[in-house]
Amino acid sequence: MVSRFKEALGSGKFVITSEVAPPKGTNLEKMQHHIDLLKDKVDGINITDHQSSAMRFPSLGGCLAVLESGGEAIMQMTCRDRNRIALEADLLFAYSRGVRNVLCLTGDAVVVGDHKEAMGVFDLDSLQLINAVHALAGGKDLGGNDLDGAVEFCVGAIVTPEAQPLEPQLIKFEKKVEAGAEFFQTQAIYDLDNFKRFMDYARKFKTKILAGIVLLSSARMAKYMTANVPGIFVPDDLLDEMSAAPKEEMLAKGIEIAGRTIAALKNETICDGVHIMAIGREETVPDILKAAGM
């Protein structure tokens, strides 16, 4: 069984991924509902891995739910909570159960989450994790020992095209490409001109870029993200557009902006696809796609 997501990446079509967050607890209803909503509309569903360092149902469990529902899962994997032994073991298990895509992340700091006194592991970083996946694919573990049965994943990573300063991010991006990252999902982008400049650079590398689309649900949220979330910058014209919308129409405005951005990225063939993050409003993703003309 090969990765359907990888096939989509290779097909030259405009690829769409989205993401679903597992619950805090064992009630999987809402997660399942979001999976059902998205599975036939996107090429891959990311399942987050204790996002923002808040303990939740595991990414791997969410991925199995995606697979059981007939969808394509992209397992997010951070280096925050597991050492290399545990990460490798989870990769073996995930592969054995049909997961074929992994997004390698360093992970947020423990102290931003809801278990502030826990130990942050970071035995590996995102780059070393990419290498670990490739080692396992080559039939060896990180200790150099032979595996009885290897893995085969489509390996991805993230990049922040709006980071300040940008060059250190680009250096790490290039290291990730060199390590064999086949696709990148970017941090949220809003300024298309800026993103085009990034793509002019990124096009030189043999990898696929999916632009991060984060739904703006209100003007306040847009301002908050610009002020507080690393690498997210909502330009003034979008802020004005959001602020001008009446309160009850703000979400619709955000959907329109997201749809319009996706349509522009696709029609002007700026990048290879998009990764839509609706953060708690997953039910709007079909509307966003409709607004994008898909």
Binding site: L105, T106, D108, A109, V111, V112, G120, F122, D125, S126, L127, Q128, I158, T160, A163, Q164, P165, P168, Q169, I171, K172, K175, Q187, P230, G231
Partner: peptide, 20 residues
């Protein structure tokens, strides 16, 4: 580095400051 990273910055770096 808060996370003890040896291969460059994480995605949390912001205008020269640390995410924590």
């Amino acid at each position: 580095c808060h996370k003890g990273l040896v291969n460059g910055p994480c995605g949390g770096t912001n205008n020269g400051k640390c995410e924590v």
